[in-house]
Write a protein that binds this DNA or RNA. Sequence first.
DNA 1: CGCGTTCTTGACTGCTTTCAAAGATGGTGG
DNA 2: CCACCATCTTTGAAAGCAGTCAAGAACGCG
Lengths: 264, 264
Amino acid sequence: MTLPMEPPVGTRVGLAMRDLAAAFATSSSALRRLTSLAPLSDQEIAALYDAERVRHRFAAHREIMSEGTPVREASILLSGWACRVRQFSDGRRQILSLLLPGDLIGMCRQRDPLAVTMVYALTDVSLCPAPDAPPRSGLAEAYAVSGALEEAYLFRQIARLGRLSAYERIIDWLLEIRDRLAEAGLVDSDRLPMPLTQEALADTLGLTSVHVNRTLQTLRREKLIEWRGGVVQLLDPARLVTSLDYQPVSVTKADRASERSPAY
Amino acid sequence: MTLPMEPPVGTRVGLAMRDLAAAFATSSSALRRLTSLAPLSDQEIAALYDAERVRHRFAAHREIMSEGTPVREASILLSGWACRVRQFSDGRRQILSLLLPGDLIGMCRQRDPLAVTMVYALTDVSLCPAPDAPPRSGLAEAYAVSGALEEAYLFRQIARLGRLSAYERIIDWLLEIRDRLAEAGLVDSDRLPMPLTQEALADTLGLTSVHVNRTLQTLRREKLIEWRGGVVQLLDPARLVTSLDYQPVSVTKADRASERSPAY
DNA sequence: CGCGTTCTTGACTGCTTTCAAAGATGGTGG
DNA sequence: CCACCATCTTTGAAAGCAGTCAAGAACGCG
C-alpha cells in the first residue's frame, strides 16, 4: 500500500475511516505522535488530517514566536526541529527545550496569553493550527498528555543541567531525543535524524561547542555512538541506559501499562 | 480591624462579602496570591476560604508525593516551602522547582495522572485541597495563570543553570524568589523569609554547598545582601536587577498592564 | 549546657572555558 | 566539473571557575 505523502485537499470524514486512520498514523509523524498519546475518534483523526492542509512554513534560523508577544493560536509542529530559546544581552544563549514533530506550540489556557520565550526554527519547519478540542474529548486528552510530557522534559532538562557532567548530559539527552523521535516514528533501529550543529547542542546542554566536540569524540572512541551526515547511530543503547539509570517518563497510568507490553 | 488568623468553621457566602474578601486577601498568603492572579467572584473567594479548613500537614523533610505515584487531587500550598526534587542513585540531588505559599501542587489535566517528580517538604508545610473550577470561571483562569507562571519559572531555572555563573545564579534566584513571595504578600521592603540551608540552595542552583557559601560571602562583602536568621535582606535590589537585566515574567496581557501601574 | 546540624575556611584537583587557528564539509555558481 | 565561500568541526595550550576533602567554628534546639 502506498501512503499519501501530502494530504489530498478536501478530504473529509469518508468511507474507509479505519484504513485512513491507519494510513495517517504512519504517513505524518506529527499525527503519529498525537494518536499515540490518547485514543482518538475517527472524527478527531480526520480533523487533524484536515488541519494539516493549512501549513505555515518557517525557514531555518527564523523566529517563529517572540518573547512577550501575544500568542494567537496553538499549533502543531508537523516537520522540522524548533526550540525555545533565552537570549542574553551579552550574547550568551540557552536553548530551553526542543520542539520535535508532533509537539504542540502555544497551547495556553489563560486569557490573553503572552509568549514566555522566543520560539526559533532550528531547521526548516512547518506548522499547522491545532484543532479545537472540546472538554473531555480524546483530543483534549492528547493535548493534556502532551502538555504533561513537555513539563516532564523540562524537569529532566533541569536535572541534566544541574547535576550531570558534560559526558552524562550528552548521553542522557540523546536517549531522551531517541524516545521522543520514536513516538513520532522517526527512529529506525537507534538511528536518529540529528540536524543540530554542535554549537546548538552546546546551547542546549549549557556547554561550549568546543567541549561538546571533545566529549562527542570520547563517545565515538568508546564506540557508543556514531554521528555523521546529520544522523546519529546509538551503538549500544543498553549500555548508555544503564550508565545513568535512564528511565523514560510516563505521565499516566495507561502510559506506564503500555511500556511494560509495547503495542508493536 | 482584627483579621481572622484561622478560618472560622462553617462560614459560607455571607453578608459583608466585600469586607470578607478584603480580609481573606490579607490574612492568608495563599489566598492573597491566588486572588492576585485573576479576578475572582465572592463565591470563589468563599470557596477558597472554605477549602482552607481542611489542612494536610507535613513535617519538614517529609515526602509529600513520590515519583511515579498516582496524583489524587490538586492541592494549594498554604504555608511553608516545598520543592520538586530529582534524586540520583549515587546521592546527587537536584531541586527542580520551589513551591511557595499559594502555589498549586498536582494540578493535572490528563486522566490517571502520575507524579513526574518527588515533592518534598523543605519546612513544615500545610496544604489544602484546591476547589474545583468550572471551565471559564475566574478560578479556572487563576489556575491557568498559575500553571503558566510555573512553566515560565521552569524556563528561567533552565537558563539559570545553563548559562549563569554561580554568582549570577544566586542573584537571579533571589530576585525571582522575592517576586514570587511578594505575590503572596510575604515580602516587606526587600526582606524575605529564607528557610533554606545553603545545602538546599546548592541543590537548587546546581552547585556545591561550599561554593554557595563562598559566593554568598562575596555578595555580603559587596553589601548586596544580608542573610541572617532565616531572613534575607536585599540591600540594593536595583543594582542586582541591572547587573543581569533581570525582568519579571508576565504570562498575560492583563498581567503586563498591572506591572506598569501597580494595583496598590 | 551539650549535641547535632549548619556554616566557614584552606589547600588542592580537575572539569570546562577561552582564545586562536587549522581542517573539513557542503552548497553554489561559473 | 571544479573552484570558492561560508559554515561547521577539530585541535592545542593556557587559564579559571567550581568541586573535593577535611577540619574547625558557630548556631540552634531541647
